[in-house]
Simulated scan of single mutants.
Amino acid sequence: MSNRFGTSLFFLVSSALLILLAGLTKNAIVVVSVAFMMLILSSYIYLSAGSLILKLYKARKIQRDENPLLYSILEELSSRAQVKTPELYSFEAEIPGMFTVGNGSKAFIAISTSMFETFDDLNLEVLLAHEVGHIKNRDVSLNTVTALFAGVIMLFPELAMWGSILSGFGQPHDPAPRFFRFATTALAAPPAATLVQLTNPQRRELEADEVAIKLTRNPQLLAKNLEYLENYIPFQPVTGKFNPGHFHLFSTHTQRIRGDRAMFISMFDTHPDTGDRVMHILNHSNYKENGILTTRYSRVPGFFDPKSWKLAMGTSFVAYMMFLFVIIVLVTFALKDFNFLINGGIAGAYIGSVLFFMRITAKVTRRKPQQKCLLSAHKRIIQNSRQVFKYFVKR
């Protein structure tokens, strides 16, 4: 219900803002026309967002005769979860990845070609169960709509780079196009990351893991595969281009940004710490021996880097201040004079809005992995101590 409410709220807020802007015209026909257009546009986005994302990845449908075993596994998982069986797609990528898109009535699971090379069908079962968990928890619509809008926002850096190239500023690796792309990334990353993080993707990943455990009754394999992916991905060369606005769609940290924009990846860290996630899976499944949790795991390095996050936030703030300078220049040229009151009012309102927005961005994107890991370790010590005490009391 909360995910349905979040999806509805997203469309309601965006529609209300445009209707309010239309209301400034004080023309009832304009207001009604805008409201009607937003209704049609919202319905189209809700129904077509999944297909649009699949087209972006050039995904193709996997026919049943191509992989009958995988389809049988997916049908069995869907039957246990009491959800409609989703359609299977594959897309070309050298990084193992899997995601689910769609709407409330239809879902599509897309699997990268590298994922098929990394895991066999039986190992894919637990990862498919995680995606089915998103479907059962009704996460898919919210994930898909969020990915579409956040992805569109993060396309502006590429558009800025190609706009500068077509304007005669050089080639993609020249300083000017790269600067335009970097500056636009600094402007686009905060709103895109905030939009994604406000949907609380970390909680929804843990809840999907819980469903996967119930469907497969094999928490050890789920934990092992997730941990393997987290250790495997960072050492693979990234040759393809991945949109940061889509990172939350994947079951693990399967995407990385490298190069001059690498600092912004911390804003899009949408998954729980892998070590804590593994312990959550094992503890939730009650996988114990003689009352004591014995499964061990290797700590995977966190993807959140506090230094990079601070640098990204500072860079974004500077970029917004540069944009304010452009606004002041344009206003001055439009008025053909520098009006201190008008420009001062614009600057004050703009800076106040940016500070408020950056504070929200900082609150939802910042993570404290060290404190979190210490807290989780403390809880595990207490829990295992209680289990040891109960074990000896029973003896």
Rank of each mutant, 00 (worst) to 15 (best):
F5Q: 06
F304D: 07
F91E: 00
V238H: 04
E87I: 10
T270R: 06
F242M: 09
I381N: 03
V152C: 07
E117S: 09
L122K: 13
K307C: 04
K106R: 15
L127D: 01
I342Q: 02
L374C: 00
M37Q: 15
R217W: 02
G344C: 03
A208F: 07
P219A: 13
K394W: 03
I95D: 00
A193K: 02
E117T: 07
A22Q: 07
S112C: 12
I382Y: 05
V126Y: 03
Q63T: 09
K61H: 09
S266E: 03
N143W: 04
S2Y: 02
E289C: 06
D139C: 12
Y232E: 08
M115R: 01
Q371I: 08
F357N: 03
L221I: 04
E66I: 06
F338H: 01
F356G: 04
L222H: 05
R386P: 00
T85A: 14
H280I: 01
L293K: 09
L41S: 15
S79D: 12
F325H: 00
R203Y: 11
R261N: 14
Q236I: 15
K307Y: 10
N3I: 04
S167W: 14
V318Y: 00
V101H: 07
S167H: 06
L374K: 09
S72A: 13
F179W: 14
P201E: 08
T294R: 15
D209R: 08
A377G: 02
L215S: 02
R395F: 08
S79L: 15
A81C: 10
L128A: 05
A362H: 12
Q171P: 00
A176D: 07
G314Y: 06
R181K: 15
I351A: 03
I342G: 05
P190G: 11
N343S: 10
Y320V: 08
T239R: 14
A59P: 01
R359V: 00
P244S: 04
L47I: 15
F317S: 07
K241I: 13
F317V: 09
F116I: 05
N286R: 12
L77P: 01
S43H: 12
W162Y: 14
G102L: 09
L74F: 02
D121Y: 02
S90V: 10
D120K: 07
E87S: 14
V13G: 02
H378R: 14
V354S: 03
P237F: 11
S167Y: 13
S376K: 08
L148S: 06
D174H: 10
K368S: 09
L148T: 07
R258E: 13
F357G: 06
L70W: 00
F317A: 08
G170I: 09
